[in-house]
């Protein structure tokens, strides 16, 4: 536990040691703003809510932004050779995997948290359901965790950050697409039976994000994100074990 905290602190401080963190946060906030006010029609909607204008874009926004956080996690360690330093310290592999993931997740949480002026704005303009907004923030953060776990695992596969980024975008997309209404329609035509369509749909982040973001915190959705994170961190550890010496 103590080791995990020490490693976590170094990782998190690492984000802020270079301008990367600040650039990332600025771009994230900028994109959130543009999407909400231009694409989402925040004012035109005339409703005191963040759902349709703000949170709805998160699954797609994260496809590009989360791999940008995760791409360096292991690729950089392997490229610099620091992985050898790290893994010969008296720490275990699970501690390393967990601390890196947690630092990235907390960093994503900080970026997400900095969108709070939007929340202040809706509260100033009207009387929104703050419970739903909170649930949406939780859902968004959980989804970020899921994408990050995938990205971390993929970052362990290669020494090249660009490759890690592209691969992570693709894998993240695979976990998003089945939930899109257009894809659902196509699937309904191709796959025999409702159950199969629902099964495919249940693998989509969109589905689970959507249901929490509506304000219904269902255990199944929480279990889904927790399992995605767990499975990919486990894979992450295996990939490191196999690839560390390359």
């Amino acid at each position: 536990m103590r080791n995990t905290i020490v490693l976590f602190k170094r990782e998190l401080a690492g984000y802020f040691a270079t301008p990367v963190a600040y650039v990332f946060i600025c771009i994230f906030l900028l994109l959130c703003g543009i999407l909400t006010f231009y694409m989402g029609g925040f004012f035109e909607g005339g409703q005191a809510t963040l759902g349709p204008a703000f949170f709805e874009f998160h699954p797609i926004l994260y496809i590009v932004l989360i791999p940008a956080i995760s791409m360096r996690l292991w690729a950089e360690e392997r490229k610099q050779g620091t992985i050898e330093l790290l893994m010969t310290l008296p720490v275990t592999l699970p501690q390393l995997v967990l601390s890196k993931f947690l630092a990235a997740w907390v960093f994503a949480g900080i970026a997400l948290g900095l969108t709070f002026p939007l929340w202040l704005t809706v509260n100033y303009l009207g009387d929104p359901d703050n419970g739903v907004i909170l649930a949406s923030y939780v859902a968004s953060w959980l989804m970020a965790g899921g994408y990050l776990a995938m990205g971390a695992c993929i970052s362990a596969v290669t020494k090249n950050q660009v490759i890690a980024f592209v691969l992570a975008v693709i894998v993240c997309l695979l976990f998003l697409i089945p939930g899109l209404p257009q894809v659902q329609e196509v699937l309904a035509g191709v796959l025999p039976g409702e159950t199969l369509v629902d099964a495919v749909k249940s693998f989509s982040f969109m589905t689970h994000f959507g249901s929490i973001a509506r304000g219904v915190i269902d255990l199944r959705d929480l279990v889904f994100f927790a399992s995605v994170i767990g499975v990919f961190l486990f894979l992450n550890a295996i990939v490191i074990e196999l690839k560390k010496a390359d």
């Binding site: 080791n3 690492g14 270079t18 610099q80 050779g81 050898e84 330093l85 310290l89 008296p90």
Partner: peptide
């Protein structure tokens, strides 16, 4: 191999904590 963004001070303090 070392972490290029860290200062020796921060890096060695990190190692000390891990040790």
């Amino acid at each position: 191999p070392l972490y290029p963004d860290m200062t020796p001070e921060a890096f060695l303090y990190f190692i000390a904590e891990i040790r």
